[in-house]
Amino acid sequence: MESLKEYLLARAENGLIRLSIQAWAVQNFGLTFPAAEETILGLNLLPARYQRNQRSLSCGQQLSLFRSKVAVIGCGGLGGHIVEELARLGVGNITIVDPDTFEEHNLNRQLFSKLDNLGQPKVAVAASRIKEINPAVTIVSVYDAFTSRNGSVLIEKVDVVADALDSIPRRLELAEVCEKSNIPLVHGSVGGWYGQVTTQFPGDYTLQKIYSRYIGERGIEKDLGNLSFVVAMIASIEVSEIVKILLGEGSTLKGKILSLNLLDMEFSEITF
């Protein structure tokens, strides 16, 4: 009987392995889907689902993404889009942390919320959706709030943390845990037509500077709410920052905040 590698190499078409071939290998070689994915990428082949990534990401970069671990803290508006985009890109390990269940007022912007899952834990819904989209992704879902008490365990061995929280004090706790754990943090926040993104590496303390004078729980979103397109946009910019950190490519928003005003269509970069 041919080996797994022989099987895959014989069935590659222009360097691509179709989903049906990968699924057959999983079943007949007794593998998990992620294990099959790693073998394919290790052979310098590409699961066909990533064909449209190919011109921008090499096979080696796709393997780097597959081996990466990202923690997404918060699975509401920002978190839903971030998790979905990371999974479709092929980031192999995603930890999702959120203590909430879906409510009706989430339906205006939270990607995973639907009429039939109101009342269900956001992290459980996210995990089952990602399984339907990309079974090569390993999801760790944590139905709990991120705090400075459990935080360092939750982000242990993670390469990058994404801030998708909705509370300023929680964000400051997250920033502190990331600082202590020596892990980069990509921050995004939204309110009304406005949003901001920054990337904080250990020693930067950017979030502490941004929120240094604020003592409340919420910012302008308390009065302005959150709009679907602003959430999707800020989440997407966060994902672009995450990918650059994972691949060590391009320029990030380290030491800078990108502030978006979609009402007046102004993008401002502020350097700290």
Partner: peptide, 24 residues
Amino acid sequence: RHGGPDSPLKDGDLLAIFPPVGGG
């Protein structure tokens, strides 16, 4: 340059002010 409420100003300065944005 990053400043605060106590920062002094001089003629010709440009002062930029951003509100806190905290939603997710």
